[in-house]
Design a protein around this nucleic acid. Structure first.
Lengths: 348, 348
DNA sequence: TGAAGAAATACAATCGATTGCAATTATTGT
DNA sequence: ACAATAATTGCAATCGATTGTATTTCTTCA
């Protein structure tokens, strides 16, 4: 058995020796350069195949100064436990992964919870990737500005910010918040709560849209109805329970995410109230689950998978040293049962 | 502004020049070698910090012949669309990510759907990672054997197989299938269906456990009750609907995964029957959702996050050129409502 | 047939950090 | 103060592929 074994050439030089050509020619043949004769090319490729040779990627990355890897970082200022399974993140990740694959790039997941993004800059991950995509700004806008000055290009999903120096892609949060609220007003609600942590840029913008809608309809803003719920399930239940138990009257809520909305619906149901009869709910994001949950969820659609693509395309432009404009993707309201939708009123 | 700019040293040599020492000394200082004087070390570190120098990881990877990256591949022989959001995969991924982080390794996600794992071997991903973890064997046992011979170590989550030459970690599927079935028999069910694609090695083992339990109790195996449902939600609904509409009598089901079980419960509920009164259900995996779904799900627990750790530890041993034994993790039954559990009978 | 020009291939510098070994400097005991 | 030894630091080979330039080999046409 062992006698027949062909010692696999590990370096290009060895393959070159076998083929009786120079290293450079092998390199060009493998990368399909027009500078090498078709016949030679075919012969070298066949030999490579036969001897099971594969280029050393580490050497290649070094020489070419790129790795073909893009790093994705999910940023929220909370502990990491359940983040990765956040449906919003996953859908975005799916879009990003697909688009990266089309461009022959690989996806590196930054796993460590980041209290300070700047730490990332010192990490191997950062140095190793050709570019980094941040999902969410958390509360680290300024630090992102610092990172943007390094020579690893970054793209951020989030809200436009004053003094922002990084490439950003995001949804139209003001309009989203506005549409959600106006819808609830249109179906006759007047005591509309807003669930979401307004210290996060995106949520703050949605809140301003919410206020705008209320103002338009002459509904007075009730500060007790704005509840700072972080993006996590557990917190949602507690906070909403608290609100339900308080004497504050409310008959609807605009939520910072679909996950939060679904959690709110569950909590409300458990308390004996009914959605949407007693309390109407509007979510945000339009995750896949929104369509299948029961009741189906009225929400502000962000085309998440597409957003993933836009992020990648923007990053690629940056890698290509092109100037990339700030991008805001439009949002639309998707009316479903949870907000007391009348049949036939669904937009699409 | 521009005048004060310190030109950041990009190579170690430049930093060495600034510090007035040799490149080698800088390298040793940065890696905290005992061979360089503490004072010099401190001085170099300070200069590196001041001048914002960071080692070129690509050069480092090349020189050290490792990248610090471990690739995770989720393998099922179906198209990729929804895979990444499979809760089982995500929990496993979480365990893997945590453990990798502790060992200062990064996580690369292989995204492309693999019809043939061998393709992976030619891919940059493979060459670039120090090791690969496969979640599931799909139907590619033989190809995994081939890949195992390459010098990138691999570890596979799955079932033990005859002639297996790769390092494997998996649950105790026979016992799992047995426990699930025995439980249903104990609560009085006699027409127990088995939902799962028995052409997948793990499922096949669970099915043999199922058969064993039936045999023990003298219940005759009804082949019509074994339904090949792949690991996907959509298919589950269709197949189960079909079974419900057929005249085949059944009062319980052992499912190949919790996702499948939850999907089955939803389908059964929609058909007007009730779980567990009409049909009792047992899942497999004990994903987080099993505890919170309603009804809560009786299931065979695989400690998924821990399994992730075991996979990583095994891979690390391989990287350390140690021989790693095949590992089978024990499984236990977790009794909850979906199988008509009597209160107080819960194991823990 | 021979020279000019094109096509194909060979040569060798280069990317930036690591590390064994050699050379230098510091420390110790007498 | 001087060996002998230990502690530091410097030197230079090395990892394996890419690519600009030089060189060789073919074509082509007069």
């Amino acid at each position: 058995m062992k006698q027949k074994k062909i010692t696999a050439p590990t370096t290009m030089q060895e393959l070159a020796d076998i083929a009786g050509v120079s290293r450079g020619t092998v390199s060009r043949a493998l990368s399909d350069s027009p500078r090498v004769k078709e016949k030679t090319k075919a012969r070298i490729l066949a030999l490579a195949e036969k001897h099971n040779y594969r280029v050393n990627q580490k050497a290649r990355n070094f020489r070419l100064r790129r790795s073909g890897v893009v790093c994705v970082v999910f940023m929220l200022d909370i502990k990491s436990e359940q983040h990765m399974s956040d449906p919003f993140f996953l859908e975005m990740l799916g879009g990003i992964a697909d688009c990266l694959a089309e461009h022959d790039l690989d996806l590196l997941l930054a796993h460590a919870p980041m209290t300070d993004v700047l730490e990332l800059q010192d990490s191997r991950v950062f140095q190793n990737s050709d570019g980094v995509i941040f999902i969410g700004q958390g509360k680290q806008h300024d630090r992102l500005n610092v990172i943007a000055k390094s020579d690893t290009p970054i793209v951020v999903w989030g809200a436009p910010m004053p003094g922002q120096r990084y490439c950003r892609v995001g949804g139209d949060n003001v309009t989203g918040g506005y549409l959600a609220t106006r819808h609830l007003l249109e179906v006759g609600r007047r005591h509309i709560a807003f669930f979401g942590d307004v210290s996060l840029p995106e949520i703050a913008l949605r809140f301003s849209g919410y206020k705008k809608a209320l103002r338009e309809q002459g509904v007075k803003l009730d500060r007790r109805l704005q509840i700072d719920i972080p993006f996590e399930m557990q917190h949602a239940r507690e906070s909403i329970d608290e609100l339900l138990n308080s004497r504050t009257k409310f008959d609807a809520a605009v939520c910072g995410s679909d996950v939060m909305a679904l959690s709110a619906i569950a909590t409300i149901n458990e308390s004996g109230l009914r959605v949407p009869d007693d309390i109407a709910i509007v979510g945000y994001d339009d995750i896949g689950l929104a369509r299948y949950a029961s009741p189906t969820l009225t929400t502000v659609r962000q085309n998440i998978r597409w957003a993933g693509r836009v992020l990648v395309e923007s990053l690629l432009s940056l890698l290509n040293s092109q100037v990339v404009a700030d991008t805001t993707l439009s949002s639309e309201l998707i009316v479903r049962q949870s907000s007391g939708a009348q049949p036939g009123k669904n937009s699409t």
